[in-house]
Amino acid sequence: MNWRKSSYSGGGEGNTCVEIASLPAHVAIRDSKAPARAVLSVPAASFAAFIESVKRGSQSAE
């Protein structure tokens, strides 16, 4: 899997965030501080809806 970190990652090596990997029908999510531990997988459409909701929420807070 090709894992990506957010551009908002903090810390010395950007390891205080979650990472995501796109799969054909799902998005995999893991803790960047413990990448060998459990991975959460959600349907891609649900993840996209979640991200859009977060974006709308942050825009209304500005």
Rank of each mutant, 00 (worst) to 15 (best):
L40M: 14
V18E: 04
N15A: 01
K33W: 04
A44D: 03
A45E: 13
A25I: 00
E62V: 11
A21C: 06
Q59V: 11
I29L: 15
S9W: 02
A49R: 15
V42H: 06
S41T: 14
V27G: 01
E52G: 13
C17F: 05
S9Q: 01
P24L: 08
A21Q: 05
V42T: 03
G10D: 02
A44E: 04
P24W: 01
A25R: 13
A44N: 06
G12N: 14
K55S: 09
S53F: 05
V54W: 08
G10Q: 11
G14V: 10
G11K: 02
E62H: 09
S46G: 14
A21V: 04
R56S: 14
W3H: 07
S46N: 12
A28Y: 07
R4L: 08
V27L: 10
R30K: 10
E52W: 00
H26E: 15
S32K: 03
M1L: 13
Q59A: 15
V18L: 13
Q59D: 13
T16S: 02
V54M: 10
P35A: 09
V18C: 02
H26Q: 15
G57M: 08
K5D: 06
S58T: 13
V39T: 15
A61K: 07
S53N: 12
G14Y: 05
G10N: 06
A28Q: 08
Q59I: 08
N2A: 11
F47W: 15
V54L: 12
P43Y: 11
L40N: 06
I29T: 02
A61C: 04
N15M: 06
R56Q: 15
P24Y: 04
G57V: 01
G12K: 08
V54N: 01
K5F: 00
M1H: 11
V42C: 06
Q59M: 14
P43I: 10
S7C: 05
T16I: 00
K33H: 03
L40C: 10
V39N: 00
D31Y: 08
A49M: 07
P43L: 08
V42L: 15
A61T: 12
S60Q: 15
G11Y: 03
F47M: 06
R4N: 02
R37Y: 06
A28L: 08
S41C: 13
R30I: 01
E52T: 12
S41W: 02
I51K: 04
S46Q: 14
S32I: 02
N2F: 09
I51R: 10
C17G: 01
M1S: 11
I29M: 06
S6P: 07
W3M: 07
H26C: 03
V42M: 11
Y8Q: 10
A44P: 05
E19K: 00
A44Q: 12
S60N: 13
A25W: 04
R56G: 11
A25K: 12
H26A: 08
A28N: 10
S41K: 11
A21T: 07
W3G: 00
L23T: 02
S46Y: 04
L40A: 14
S9L: 03
A28T: 08
I29S: 03
A21I: 06
S32N: 10
A28M: 09
A49V: 09
F47A: 05
N2I: 12
S53Q: 11
A45I: 11
A34N: 14
V27R: 05
S6W: 03
P24S: 07
S22E: 13
